[in-house]
C-alpha cells in the first residue's frame, strides 16, 4: 500500500479551557474517500480545522505526504494543496459567485475546462455567476463552497458536512459531484452525519468518540454491521 496522503499522530487540540482532541491518530489513504464519523460534539470538525491549521494543535504530528505541517501557517497548508470546505460554508457573501471562484483559483485564472465541469455539476453557479453570493439559497451556497474547493486540483480535500440541512434533491447533486471528484482519484477526508451519503461515497471510515479515534476500517465493514453502527455512532437501522 502506498504512503498515505495524510497521517495524524497523537494530535491534541484545546479550545480555551476545553480539551477537544485528546490524541487523535489515523491515516487518510491516497486517492480514496475517508469518512470521519461520530456523534455530535466528539471532535470531528475540530479535527478538520486542526488539520487546516485553524485551531492550533498543542501536541502531535500532522503529516501531509510525510511532511509535518502541524506548525505551518494556514495559508501554507492551503498552498501545499489542502482544499477546505468548512461547516459554515465560508462564503464571501458580498462578493459575486465569480469573485468567490476567482479567489479560490489561487495559482492563476480559473481554468475554462474546469469551470465548465463545475457548471455542469452545479448549474446554479452558471445562473448566478455574476450575482452576490449572499443572495444564494443555502443549497446553492453549499454548491459554491464545494465548487470553490474544486476550483483547482488539490492534493487533499477536507469537507465538513456538505449535505447539512439540504433538501434531498440537492443532496443528490452534491453526491454526484463528489463521486465525480472521487472518480478523478482525489483524496478526500469528509465529515458527514448522513450515513447514507457516507455509505455512498466512503471507502474507509474513521469513527471518533470523546476526542479520540475509536474505530477505523472499511465502509463495507461498517455498512454490513448495524450493531457496530449503533454502538459507535448511535445509529439505528431506522435512521438510514
Amino acid at each position: 500500500m502506498s504512503e498515505p496522503i495524510l497521517a495524524l499522530d497523537g494530535v491534541v487540540t484545546d479550545i480555551g479551557q476545553y480539551h477537544i482532541l485528546k490524541g487523535v491518530s489515523f491515516e487518510v489513504p491516497r486517492g480514496q474517500v475517508t469518512m470521519l464519523l461520530g456523534r455530535n460534539g466528539v471532535g470531528k470538525t475540530t479535527t478538520l480545522r486542526t488539520i487546516m491549521g485553524l485551531w492550533p494543535a498543542r501536541a502531535g504530528r500532522i503529516l501531509l505526504d510525510g511532511e509535518d505541517i502541524a506548525r505551518a501557517p494556514v495559508s501554507n497548508r492551503a498552498g501545499q494543496g489542502v482544499g477546505f470546505v468548512p461547516e459554515d460554508m465560508g462564503i464571501f457573501s458580498d462578493l459575486t459567485v465569480e469573485e468567490n471562484m476567482i479567489l479560490a483559483a489561487r495559482s492563476g485564472p480559473l481554468d475554462g475546462a474546469r469551470r465548465d465541469w463545475l457548471f455542469a455539476a452545479f448549474p446554479p453557479l452558471r445562473t448566478f455567476w455574476r450575482s452576490e453570493a449572499g443572495n444564494l439559497s443555502g443549497g446553492q451556497k453549499q454548491m459554491l463552497s464545494i465548487a470553490r474547493a474544486m476550483a483547482e486540483e488539490r492534493r487533499l480535500y477536507l469537507i465538513d458536512e456538505p449535505t447539512k440541512g439540504l433538501a434531498p434533491a440537492i443532496v443528490s447533486t452534491m453526491v454526484g459531484a463528489l463521486r465525480e471528484l472521487k472518480a478523478q482519484g482525489a483524496s478526500i477526508l469528509m465529515v458527514e452525519q448522513n450515513f447514507s451519503v457516507a455509505r455512498a461515497l466512503g471507502d474507509r471510515v474513521v469513527v471518533m468518540d470523546d476526542g479520540v479515534v475509536v474505530w477505523t476500517g472499511t465502509m463495507a465493514e461498517l455498512a454490513a454491521d448495524t450493531a457496530r453502527q449503533e454502538r459507535l455512532m448511535g445509529l439505528s437501522v431506522e435512521a438510514h
Binding site: 495559508s75 492551503a78 465560508g90 458580498d94
Partner: peptide, 24 residues
C-alpha cells in the same frame, strides 16, 4: 484586482481567505 478581492473577502471572513492560501 485580485488584491482588492482579497481585501474585500478578508473584511468579511479572514479565516477563509487564509484557508484559500493567502497570507492575510
Amino acid at each position: 484586482t485580485k488584491i482588492g478581492l482579497i481585501v474585500r473577502a478578508g473584511v468579511q471572513n479572514g479565516e477563509m481567505v487564509e484557508a484559500l492560501g493567502y497570507r492575510l
